[in-house]
Amino acid sequence: MQLALGQRDSYSLWRILQTERIATGDVLVTLRAESAFGILPQLDKSKIHPGCVRGVEAALERVLSSAYRELPQSVVDQCRNAAVMVISRWMHVETGDADPIEQDLGHWIRAVKVKFGEQEMVALRSALEAINRLHPRGKDNEANKHQLRQVEEADAEFAVHALGFILREVKWAV
C-alpha cells in the first residue's frame, strides 16, 4: 500500500513496508520513499537508448530497494551492478558498437579512458573506480588478502551518491 504525506499540491509517496504493535501498544509503521528524490536523480529516459531503459530502471530500483533495507555490502554490490548497466549502455550509444554490454566495470573504466582520452571524463572514471574499489571489501578473501577494512554504512551511502553523480555526468539525469 502507498501513503501520501504532505498537502494536495506538495506531497511525497511512501510505500508501507511493515506495521507492528510495539510494547506500548502503539503501532510502528515502516515506510520506504517511492521516489529517489534526494538519493538518485530522476532518469531522463529520452537520453537513453529505448532498448536499454528497462534494464537501467531495474538496476536503479534494486539500488533503491537495497539502500533502505540491506547491509552496506549489498548496497555497494547493487551500485556496482547499476554502474555497469549505466556506463555500458551509455558507451553503447557513444561508440555505436554493436555489442558492448557484457563486460566488467573495470573494462568500462578503461574503455571510457581510451574513447575520451587521459584528460577527459576524469570525474566520471573516478566515480566508477570508487564504486569498483569498494566492491572487494565485502569479499572476505579479498579483504583479508589486501587488508581492507569492512564496508560501512557511510561507504554504502557514498556508493549511492557516486552512482547519482555518474547519472549526471552521462547526462541521464533530469
Rank of each mutant, 00 (worst) to 15 (best):
L5C: 02
G6F: 02
R8G: 10
S10P: 03
Y11G: 11
Y11K: 11
L13V: 14
L13Y: 04
W14C: 09
I16P: 03
I16H: 07
E20W: 03
R21Y: 03
I22V: 15
I22P: 03
T24L: 05
G25C: 12
G25Q: 00
D26N: 13
V27W: 10
L28H: 05
L28T: 02
V29D: 09
V29Q: 10
V29K: 07
T30Y: 13
T30R: 14
T30A: 13
R32N: 09
R32K: 15
A33P: 05
E34S: 14
E34I: 04
L40D: 05
P41F: 07
P41D: 08
P41R: 11
P41T: 06
L43G: 01
K45S: 14
K45P: 02
K45H: 12
S46G: 15
K47Q: 15
I48Y: 04
I48R: 01
H49V: 03
V53Y: 01
V56I: 15
A58T: 05
A58R: 10
A58Y: 08
L60D: 01
E61C: 06
E61L: 14
S65R: 11
S65V: 09
S66F: 09
E70A: 03
E70Y: 03
L71M: 13
L71C: 09
Q73N: 00
Q73W: 03
S74C: 04
V75G: 03
V76D: 01
C79G: 07
C79Y: 02
C79D: 06
R80K: 15
R80L: 00
A82I: 11
M85E: 11
I87M: 04
I87Y: 02
S88C: 11
M91N: 05
H92V: 07
E94N: 10
T95I: 06
G96F: 08
D97I: 07
D97H: 13
D97T: 08
A98K: 06
D99L: 09
D99E: 10
P100K: 11
I101Y: 15
E102I: 02
Q103I: 01
L105I: 14
W108P: 01
I109S: 01
I109M: 08
A111M: 06
A111G: 00
V112D: 01
V112H: 02
K113L: 08
F116K: 10
G117R: 05
Q119W: 06
Q119I: 02
E120N: 13
M121H: 11
M121K: 15
A123Q: 12
A123F: 11
L124D: 06
R125H: 04
S126A: 13
A127M: 10
L128K: 00
L128S: 00
E129H: 12
E129T: 05
E129D: 14
I131R: 01
N132M: 00
L134E: 05
L134K: 02
H135N: 05
H135S: 00
H135E: 04
P136A: 06
P136T: 04
